[in-house]
Amino acid sequence: MKKIVSSVLLAASAFAAAAQDYPNHAIRLVVPFTPGGGADLVARAVAAPLAKRLGQPIVVDNKPGGGATLGADIVAKAPADGYTLLYTTPGPQMANPFLMSRLPYDPEKDLVPVSEVAVVPNVLVVNKDVPARTVQEFIAYVKAHPGKASFASAGVGASSHLAGELFKQMAGIDLLHVPYRGTSLALTDLQSGQVQAAIDSIVVYKPYIDAGTLRPLGVATAQRSALLPSVPPIAEQLKGYEAAPVNYISVPAHTPQAIVDRLNREINAVLQTPEVRDQLIASGVLPQGSTQAQMQALVRSEAAKWKKVIEVSGAKLD
């Protein structure tokens, strides 16, 4: 018994010493998406100033695959020492547990949220030939053409898919889902009128809105976007609607709390700097920041929200 107690005390002392010395070498930031995508760009915008504050390099490591589960699994199984971080979106902990019958990690037990980083606003757009200029007019149009109007997404389980399913359910409309292998293919058919609508990133759709080939009806955030200041939130006409993917950082479970607290503190400090805020806002991203408790609560509430949407829609990834 004494040996067991001694071992526990020694392990605790080692963790405490490691936390006090943290960080003393490079940190790996796993991004479970391809380079150049929205999440990757935000991760890199935050990584450089965060590395400066921590005094150690942060290496961004793109590990796409499996709907972001590949990268999430790498972090979930990494040593809990603060040197492997996950930059993620709703998939790994909020949506995939309900889209997939089995995950290689436990989203609740193996990953611990550290801090919110940003929200990537979506916008509801329609093809220019759709006779609707408001959310309510679009809902009326779909009700007048049951089963004929459709919305495009970047694929089953993508944020653009779930945002559309939430809209359908809250509006009580029969809107056909047409999944594509990425946003670029969806855009082609959306502009030609093969599909009538989509709810996806403002950053992606803004050039087409500016060109007049797509018409914005509402943003999917509670507030207006600086990129589309004249476009009201969807929630003004469909009360309670919100579907903007949150970006946040997680670590392996059992990471010492002192390390989690240090990371949270530094991430929030970075997000308060004018340079980072201006860079993110200019790219259409809303810098957020949070306490760890707030981020944990957000994971729980968003998971419950998307679980219901996914169950009603019948969406599956396997």
Rank of each mutant, 00 (worst) to 15 (best):
G91W: 12
L187K: 12
A47F: 04
Y141A: 02
N24R: 13
I259K: 08
N127D: 13
A76I: 06
L41E: 10
Q257H: 14
V260F: 03
F33M: 02
G66N: 10
A132T: 03
V156D: 11
N127L: 04
V59Q: 12
Y83N: 08
A171H: 04
A235M: 00
P216I: 11
L9V: 13
V142C: 10
A282P: 00
R262Y: 00
M295N: 08
T134V: 02
A95T: 15
V156Y: 13
G65M: 07
L9T: 05
P233L: 05
R265S: 15
K128N: 13
L317W: 03
I74Q: 14
M170L: 14
K148N: 01
G82I: 02
L298P: 01
H177K: 05
A226T: 06
A154M: 08
H161P: 01
D278S: 15
Y87T: 01
L263P: 01
G65Y: 08
A95I: 09
R277S: 04
P179G: 07
T34D: 14
S301F: 06
Y205W: 11
L185W: 12
L175G: 11
N24V: 00
F15W: 13
G289M: 08
A303W: 09
A17N: 05
A48L: 07
A140D: 14
I209C: 02
T134F: 09
E137L: 00
H25L: 01
D40N: 15
I209S: 06
T213Q: 08
V195D: 01
A222F: 13
Y105K: 07
A18L: 12
G284V: 08
A152H: 06
Q20L: 14
F98V: 01
A171F: 04
L111W: 06
V42D: 07
F151P: 00
G157V: 04
L162M: 14
A72D: 02
A68F: 15
A149T: 05
S115E: 06
A39H: 14
V195Y: 10
D210P: 00
L286D: 13
A132D: 09
I281L: 15
S160I: 04
V130S: 09
G36M: 04
Q196W: 10
D261H: 11
V117T: 09
A222R: 14
A51C: 06
G212K: 05
V59C: 00
Q237N: 08
H145Y: 02
F15I: 03
A132Y: 04
A132F: 03
G314F: 05
A244T: 09
Q169N: 09
S290T: 08
A140C: 02
V195C: 06
G284N: 06
A95Y: 00
K143E: 11
T89K: 01
V119H: 04
A144V: 00
L166T: 04
V123P: 01
L238H: 13
S230A: 15
A253T: 13
R133P: 00
A43N: 10
L176W: 05
I249G: 06
L317F: 10
F138E: 05
R53W: 00
A26H: 12
V219G: 04
V203N: 11
L85N: 01
D278E: 15
T221E: 15
G66V: 02
L217C: 03
I58F: 02
R53L: 14
S301Q: 14
S159H: 11
D129M: 02
G240C: 01
L175T: 07
Y248L: 14
P90M: 02
G193H: 09
A293K: 14
L298R: 15
S160C: 04
E236W: 08
A45H: 12
